[in-house]
Amino acid sequence: MSKAPLFSISILVGVILLSFFGGLIYNVSPFELNSEAILLPPSLEHPLGTDRLGRDLLARIIEGGKVSLTIGVGSAIIASLIGIMAGVSAGYFKGKVDKSFVIAVDLFLTFPTFFLLLAMVSYVEASTLVLIVVISITGWMTTARMIRSESFAIGNKPFIKILKIASVPSYKIILKYFLPLIAPIFFISFTFGVGGAILSESGLSFLGLGVLPPQMSWGSILSEGKEVIDIAWWVSFFPGLMIFLVTFSLINISDYLQSVTNKREKII
């Protein structure tokens, strides 16, 4: 039994508080241009420095955090919902439903996810909502597979078989007996999924296919910094660090949940 990942939890809570309430304390505009303060290194006045248009980096990271976290959580919610519905129906009904499930998952796994994202974003203009949809429909497969194999195991339990023989309606069996048993695996893959979605979003933003200016996310700030990386490391260093810290904490928490619930599924 491993210890609770207090360090990861506090980082996560800290970043969430910073992103959504940091603006109340640190009252600097993330949009304001300042030609006097271009590419300043971190200092007391600008704790994380400024970018090449003289905008304050801390304020931008706070603002970008809202977008990155929203996309991460939003995509993970949708992806998990798709995963639960597909996984449970495949595991419960088996047979033809399961066969079509396997084909669908194979199909999505065969497309390189990133290519699919690129192809979609290249013709739909990116916005927070579009990114959430795109990332979730390319990221539901892992959850679905895990839930499918879990549902198979649950479906083979004697009490489920008895319920089926007693012709209890399927939706009742699923809602009342399947979902509670699936809950642990759901939370594991959800925390894991949020991390994965934040990584996907930042990758897209990094290639210039993420949210459009004046909106910003950690990935897009990092991407703006890559042109001045040799003279101003801080512009890309800090947003990248945020992405890394948040995903690292989420994955740590997910790993902890796995060891607590004793559901060490192989996530890849």
Partner: peptide, 22 residues
């Protein structure tokens, strides 16, 4: 392994470029 998993490839790429190339 957890660090490896959560490290965005482009971020690591930028870091190694700054450090080892620049």
């Amino acid at each position: 392994s957890l660090i490896s998993f959560s490290m965005p490839s482009f971020y690591l790429a930028l870091l190694v470029i700054i450090l080892f190339a620049v």
